[in-house]
Write a protein that binds this DNA or RNA. Structure first.
Length: 374
RNA sequence: GGUUCCGUGGUGUAGGGGUUAACACGUCUGCCUGUCACGCAGAAGAUCGCGGGUUCAAAUCUCGUCGGAACCG
C-alpha cells in the first residue's frame, strides 16, 4: 500500500507546526521524524536493532549507490531493500538526485538525464528520471524519490529557473513509468531562494499528485536565513494532507526551524558523519570529543541522554577510542548522535501535543547556544 | 683495549658546505547538513649531542669530548 499522512493537530500558537501520523507498510509513526541515512543499505557502523533502540522509523538508502553496487536486481532478488538489510521499519530511497550535485559536472546534465563518472571505477554512466524510478521500483523501498537536480548555491536565477522546470519535467517522466503498488513516490520542490520559483515548483509538482512532497536544494552552502526562507516559500504552497520532507537537513536548530515551517520529515548524514570524525551533539551545543580537556573526563557525553553510549561510557573512554582509530568510537558516537536527533523530534512532538512548541524551541536553542558547561 | 658506524621537533627518518632545516606518525585546534569520505583545513613543536677549528658561510668538513650500536681482541 501507499503511505498515508494523517494530520493530528497543529500547534495552537503556530498553525504551520504539525503533529501527524505516517502510516507505512512497516508500521505507523508519529511525525515530525528524523531519518538516519544508510546510503549503501547500511547506516555506517550500526546494526538494525541498534537503530531501533535509538527509536528509528524510516531509514534512507541511495539509488545511485545501490545501482552501482550490488545492483538493483540483487536487492530485488533478496526480497527488496527492507529484507536485504534486515530492517523491519520503513525505508526511503533517494533518487540519485543529490549525486547530480555531488558527483556530476554541470556540463554532464542534459534534458535526457545525467552523465556520471562512476566514483568506483571511473566508467561512464547515464542516469535518467525513468531509470532512477525503475531502479527504485526494484529496490522496493517504501518511499521513492523523484529524480531531481539539486542546484548549487549560488546559482543564477536563470539557471535555477531552467533547472527547476527541468526537474518538473523529470518528475512527470518518472511518475509516468512508476510501477510498484507497494511503494510511494514523492515529488521534489526546487527553485532556490526565489519565492516565485518555489511557488511555481510547488504548484506544478502538487498538480502531479504525489504521495508526499520534498523540499530540495537547501543546505548547499547558503546562509541560514536564506535556507529558512526557502523552506517557508515551499511549505506555504503544499497540501496539508500530505507529508513534507526537508531533504538533507539535520542540524538540531535547523530541525526546529524546519518544524516551525511545517516540515514532517528530515534526513541527514550529519549525525553519523561527524560521529566518525569525533564530534557529538549535546544539549549545550556540539562538542569535539578529541579535545584534550576530555582526556580525563569520566562523565557521559550528555548527562540527561538516555542512549546506550551515555548510559554506559564516559567521554574519556569514547575519546580514547576515537583518537586510537577504533571503529567502536565512531559507533558509540553515531548511536548517541542519532538518538539525540530522534529524541529531539520526540520532544518536539510532545511539545506540540501540549501546545508549547514555541517555548520548547526557544529553551532548546538557548541551551544549545550557551554552551557554558562545555 | 682496537676498528667501524650512528647522535637532527615527542617518535622514526631525510638532508653530506649557501636564504624561513624537509617528511611520516604523534600532539593541539577548527570544519563536516538528500555520504565517493575513520575525511578535510590549519597550528604548535628542532638554535641539528656538547666544545673547539677550517670557511665569507657549517646540521653538513675537521679535531676533541660525551652517549649509543656492531664487529675484532
Amino acid at each position: 500500500m501507499k503511505i498515508k499522512y494523517e494530520l493530528i493537530k497543529n500547534n495552537k500558537e503556530d498553525e504551520n507546526v504539525r503533529l501527524g501520523l505516517l502510516h507505512t507498510n512497516h508500521g505507523t509513526y508519529q511525525t515530525p521524524i528524523f531519518m538516519p541515512v544508510g546510503t549503501l543499505a547500511n547506516v555506517k557502523t550500526l546494526m538494525p536493532e541498534e537503530l531501533k533502540a535509538c527509536g528509528s522509523s524510516v531509514v534512507l538508502s541511495n539509488t545511485y549507490h545501490l545501482w552501482l553496487r550490488p545492483g538493483e536486481d540483487v536487492v530485488n532478488k533478496a526480497g527488496g531493500l527492507n529484507k536485504f538489510m534486515n530492517y523491519d521499519g520503513p525505508t526511503l530511497t533517494d533518487s540519485g538526485g543529490f549525486q547530480v550535485f555531488s558527483l556530476a559536472k554541470p556540463c554532464d546534465i542534459s534534458e535526457q538525464g545525467v552523465k556520471f563518472k562512476s566514483h568506483i571505477d571511473g566508467r561512464s554512466l547515464f542516469l535518467t528520471p525513468e531509470k532512477s524510478i525503475q531502479i527504485q521500483n526494484k529496490l522496493n523501498s517504501d518511499i521513492a524519490m523523484s529524480f531531481d537536480e539539486c542546484a548549487a548555491y549560488p546559482s543564477t536565477r536563470q539557471y535555477i529557473e531552467q533547472s527547476m522546470r527541468r526537474t518538473l519535467r523529470w518528475a512527470k517522466r518518472g511518475k509516468d513509468v512508476f510501477d510498484n503498488p507497494n511503494q510511494s513516490l514523492f515529488g521534489i520542490v526546487q527553485g532556490g531562494e526565489f519565492e516565485d520559483l518555489r511557488y511555481e515548483s510547488a504548484k506544478e509538482t502538487v498538480k502531479m499528485d504525489f504521495d508526499g512532497y520534498s523540499i530540495g536544494g537547501t543546505s548547499v552552502g547558503e546562509p541560514k536565513d536564506i535556507m529558512y526562507n526557502m523552506i517557508s516559500y515551499a511549505t506555504k504552497y503544499l497540501p496539508k494532507d500530505k507529508p513534507r520532507y526537508l531533504m538533507g537537513v539535520g542540524d538540531p536548530i535547523d530541525i526546529l526551524q524546519g518544524v516551525s515551517r511545517g516540515i514532517d520529515m528530515f534526513d541527514c548524514v550529519l549525525p553519523t558523519r561527524i560521529a566518525r570524525h569525533g564530534n557529538c551533539f549535546t544539549k549545550h551545543g556540539r562538542i569535539n570529543i578529541k579535545n584534550a580537556k576530555y582526556k580525563e573526563d569520566f562523565t557521559p557525553i550528555d548527562e540527561n541522554c538516555d542512549c546506550y553510549t551515555c548510559k554506559n561510557f564516559t567521554k574519556a573512554y569514547v575519546r580514547h577510542l576515537i583518537t586510537s582509530g577504533e571503529v567502536n568510537g565512531g559507533r558509540l558516537l553515531s548511536i548517541h548522535n542519532i538518538r539525540f536527533l530522534i529524541r529531539l523530534t520526540e520532544e518536539i512532538r510532545e511539545s506540540i501535543k501540549n501546545d508549547r512548541f514555541e517555548e520548547y524551541k526557544e529553551e532548546f536553542i538557548n541551551a544549545y547556544k550557551n554552551d557554558g558547561n562545555n
